[in-house]
């Protein structure tokens, strides 16, 4: 027992040192490169919680086999309302609740499970912590809410360049527009 405790303590000490080193080097790196987007954590939550499963990567949602997921691009919801919707889901729809204990330990929209009845929203596949929900709300507000049609740059910002998923947004109209712009300029 003693030995293993000592061993554990040593292991923790080493891990802490490693963690410190990583955070130092991370800080050094971010100083020399472009500052990271503060909403990257929220983008990660958007992916991990599979928001894109219904709302799509671009947030436009739309009809389909899963029914009609609302457009986050056209949403009027405030940051607080987005946090509430993610935490509690939307009663009577497929939008799940992402906080453990919603409708049981804590009321949602002033309802417990028995009050919600058949309007009870589904439970999400993953539960999120409050900080994660705030992060995803910040991401939606910074990158999705109020935006027009999805663009190639937005798509590659979401997926990176490793997939052909964004090719479809490379509009052929672009060269023509450039041509027209040139003509207009002449």
């Amino acid at each position: 027992m003693k030995i293993s405790r000592i061993y554990l303590a040593a292991l923790i000490a080493v891990s802490c040192m490693v963690a410190t080193l990583i955070s130092i080097s991370g800080a050094a790196f971010s100083q020399s490169a472009t500052p990271a987007d503060p909403t990257d954590a929220g983008k990660h939550v958007f992916q991990r919680a599979n928001c894109m499963g219904c709302h799509k990567w671009h947030g436009n949602g739309g009809g389909g086999y899963g029914g009609d997921a609302l457009s986050l691009r056209q949403t009027q919801l405030t940051r607080e309302q987005i946090v509430e919707t993610v935490s509690c889901g939307r009663p009577g729809t497929g939008m799940p609740f992402f906080v453990r204990g919603s409708y049981d330990a804590t009321k949602c929209y002033d309802m417990l499970r028995k009050d919600a009845g058949d309007q009870m929203p589904p439970e999400a596949n993953v539960f999120l912590r409050p900080s994660e929900i705030e992060a995803v709300a910040d991401y939606v507000i910074a990158h999705i809410k109020g935006k027009g049609e999805p663009t190639y740059d937005e798509c590659t910002a979401f997926f990176g360049n490793g997939s052909r998923v964004c090719n479809v947004y490379k509009t052929e109209a672009k060269p023509a527009e450039a041509e027209q712009a040139k003509k207009a300029a002449q």
Partner: peptide, 23 residues
């Protein structure tokens, strides 16, 4: 089935074009 009336402007590459959805 909850149908939705479709119009040609709703056709977008790589997006669902289903005219509604099931529950």
């Amino acid at each position: 089935i909850t149908p939705e009336a479709m119009t040609p402007d709703k056709i977008k590459p790589r997006e669902f074009f289903t005219g509604g959805g099931p529950s």
